[in-house]
């Protein structure tokens, strides 16, 4: 009998391990979900290639080490620059800027196409097979409250949360950050007040690309680098952003963590076969009960 719920043998230990590893995966979803909200806030862009944006940087790193013979840290640095240039600057200039005046729908279609292009290009010109990606941390475990918790999970969680904290600090504590927020809230007024709106929007795209890079190098050692990795990641991040609240960074963070944990608990306690349905069920419940998302603002933005 597969997948019998073993609630009978429920142990706090097991629950704690599931919870922490769920938080770790969830924090990576959160990085991607935050990218969704950033782009939406700054330019009403819904980027359906977000999953592929997370898949690609790992391959930039691998191309650097395998084809150019670079050392891993150098390849990482170059991949970061490449990600920011291609997935940030290039994405905005080539795809978003020309299409933005025509509304949201053409951008949605264009980014779906971009996602397919990125996926198929990796498959065609790199490989269709999964590739090993070096782990950034040791695979030891720590004994916390009697449960063996993976060091890698804790490190992933800390780095992802650290990045989000830095981002919040930047947005709230610096002049550029506050200008970016002003741009997001009301670009016309911001422009009148002398905020360089176009540059602020560009910054948002660069930050999104950097977050995607971070998510990529955190997830690839665990999932392996594969052209199709973006499919589920993009979808789950999108759901996380909606569940948490599309117009709030802390909403996207909460949504990502929640889905990571719920997915893990559902797989262990309910059924592994139906685990992929759980985020979707969560999405439906949220849309019915609280359409603005858990932490989202009801009115959103006025245009």
């Amino acid at each position: 009998m597969p997948d019998l719920p073993f609630l009978g043998t429920f142990s706090m230990n097991t629950f704690f391990q599931l919870f922490v590893s769920g938080l770790a995966t969830g924090s990576i979803y959160a990085l991607a979900a935050i990218g969704f909200t950033l782009l939406w806030q700054a330019s009403q862009t819904i980027n359906f290639a977000q999953g592929e944006f997370i898949m690609l940087p790992a391959f930039f790193v691998l191309a650097g080490t395998q084809f150019l013979g670079l050392s891993f840290p150098v390849a990482m640095a170059i991949a970061l620059v490449l990600s920011v240039l291609l997935l940030g600057l290039g994405f905005k200039r080539v795809i978003i800027d020309p299409l933005l005046p025509h509304g949201v729908l053409p951008i949605v279609i264009a980014t779906i196409a971009l996602g397919i292009l990125a996926k198929e290009s990796v498959k065609q010109f790199y490989t269709a097979e999964a590739q090993p990606f070096p782990a950034l941390f040791s695979d030891r475990t720590l004994n916390i409250l009697g449960a063996a918790i993976s060091v890698q999970d804790i490190a992933v969680l800390l780095i992802a949360l650290g990045a989000v904290a830095l981002l919040q600090l930047f947005l709230n504590g610096t002049k550029i950050g506050r200008c970016m927020q002003a741009t997001a809230q009301n670009p016309q007024v911001a422009e009148i007040l002398g905020v360089p709106v176009r540059r602020m929007i560009l910054f948002t795209f660069l930050i999104n690309a950097a977050l995607a890079f971070l998510a990529s190098v955190l997830i690839s050692p665990i999932y392996l680098a594969k052209f199709s990795n973006g499919e589920t990641l993009g979808l789950i991040a999108f759901i996380a952003a909606i569940v948490g609240g599309f117009n709030q960074i802390r909403g996207a963070l909460a949504g990502g963590l929640l889905i990571g944990v719920v997915d893990n608990l559902a797989a262990a306690y309910i059924s592994a076969s139906y685990r992929s349905a759980v985020p979707l069920i969560l999405l439906i419940i949220i849309i019915l009960v609280r359409p603005q998302g858990l932490l989202g603002k009801a009115e959103g933005r006025t245009v």
Binding site: N13, L18, T25, S228, N229, A267, A268
Partner: peptide, 22 residues
């Protein structure tokens, strides 16, 4: 003691492994 199924192409094995381990 445990009978855990996973899906083709599954990326995340955290829950499966914790179940097997416990």
């Amino acid at each position: 003691n445990a009978d855990v199924s996973s899906e083709v192409g599954q990326a995340d094995f955290a829950a499966d492994v914790i179940k097997l381990k416990s």
